[in-house]
C-alpha cells in the first residue's frame, strides 16, 4: 500500500504538484492520466525517491519514506522497478547485460543461474532474439520491453511505468500495455503507470487518477470517470 498525503512540489516559483492525496492498493494497476506538463512524471518520481516533496508525506507499506536518506532509498528500490519513458537502458551494455545487471548487483546468483533467469524474463517480454543487441539497435518498443524486463527482474513488488505507450504506434502501444498488465498480474505487483493514452489506460488499469496542472481532479474506475460530469474530464477521455 502506497499512501501519499498532501504532497506539494515546486521548482523555483513554478508550482508543479499541489496537495496531492492518493492511496494505491496492493496488487492494483493504477493509471495516472493527464496532459503533458501536468506533473505526472514528477509525481511518479516522488514515489521512488528521485524527488523529495516540499510538503506532505509518502508512506510505503506503513513506513514513512518521505525523509529517507539516499542510502536507505537505494536499499528500498531493490523492491521496486521504474520504467523510464525512453527506457534509459545502459547503452554500453547489450540487452542481456542490461537485464542481468540488477541480478549481478543484488543477488549472489552464479553466472549460469543469472543466464537462466534473464533468458526466462526476455522470453516473457518477447526479446530472446535481441538479447545480444545494443540499445541503439532496438526500436522504441523493444527498448521499453527490455527496460521493463530490467525493472522486474529482481521480482519487484512495485512497478512504476512512465508513459509506457508514448512514441509507439497503436499496435505497439497495445502490446506494451498488455505486457505490463500480464507482468503485473503474474508477479502480483502493485503497478502505477502514467499516460495520456486514455484507451490503453482504460484497458489495463483497475483505477485511474486524473491530474490537471498538478492537482488531482478525479479518482475512480473507468465507469466512474465515464459517468463524470466535469467538463475537462469529459473532454479528456472522449
Amino acid at each position: 500500500m502506497i499512501k501519499v498525503r498532501g504532497l506539494s512540489k515546486s521548482f523555483g516559483d513554478h508550482v508543479v504538484l499541489k496537495d496531492v492525496n492518493v492511496e494505491i492498493k496492493d496488487g492494483e494497476i493504477l493509471a495516472i492520466l493527464g496532459e503533458s506538463g501536468a506533473g505526472k512524471s514528477v509525481f511518479l518520481q516522488h514515489l521512488i525517491g528521485l524527488f523529495r516533496p516540499d510538503q506532505g508525506t509518502v508512506e510505503i507499506d506503513g513506513r514513512d519514506v518521505t525523509h529517507l536518506s539516499e542510502r536507505s532509498w537505494l536499499e528500498l528500490r531493490k523492491n521496486m522497478g521504474y520504467l523510464f519513458q525512453q527506457g534509459a537502458l545502459y547503452d554500453f551494455m547489450t540487452v542481456f547485460e542490461n537485464v542481468a545487471f540488477p541480478l549481478q548487483e543484488h543477488t549472489s546468483l552464479q553466472a549460469r543461474e543469472i543466464k537462466v533467469k534473464v533468458d526466462e524474463i526476455l522470453e516473457m517480454v518477447g526479446l530472446q532474439e535481441a538479447a545480444r543487441k545494443y540499445p541503439a539497435e532496438l526500436s522504441g518498443g523493444m527498448k521499453k520491453r527490455a527496460a521493463l524486463a530490467r525493472a522486474v527482474v529482481l521480482g519487484s513488488k512495485i512497478i512504476f511505468c512512465d508513459e509506457p505507450t508514448s512514441g509507439l504506434d497503436p499496435m505497439r502501444s497495445r502490446d506494451i500495455s498488455d505486457l505490463i498488465q500480464r507482468t503485473s498480474r503474474r508477479l502480483k505487483c502493485t503497478t502505477v503507470i502514467t499516460s495520456h493514452d486514455v484507451p490503453n489506460s482504460f484497458r489495463i488499469a483497475d483505477r485511474l487518477v486524473v491530474f490537471r496542472e498538478g492537482v488531482i481532479i478525479a479518482v475512480g474506475t473507468q465507469q466512474e470517470l465515464l459517468a463524470s460530469s466535469d467538463q475537462f474530464i469529459k473532454e479528456f477521455i472522449k
Binding site: 518520481q45 521512488i48 525517491g49 528521485l50 539516499e70 532509498w73 537505494l74 536499499e75 528500498l76 528500490r77 531493490k78 521496486m80 522497478g81 521504474y82 523510464f84 519513458q85 525512453q86 534509459a88 537502458l89 545502459y90 547503452d91 545487471f101 540488477p102 548487483e105 543484488h106 527496460a147 530490467r150 525493472a151
Partner: peptide, 13 residues
Amino acid sequence: NDQMLATRTLGVD
C-alpha cells in the same frame, strides 16, 4: 537519457 536516474532506481549508486 535518464541512465543516471535509472541507476538509482536499480538500487545502485
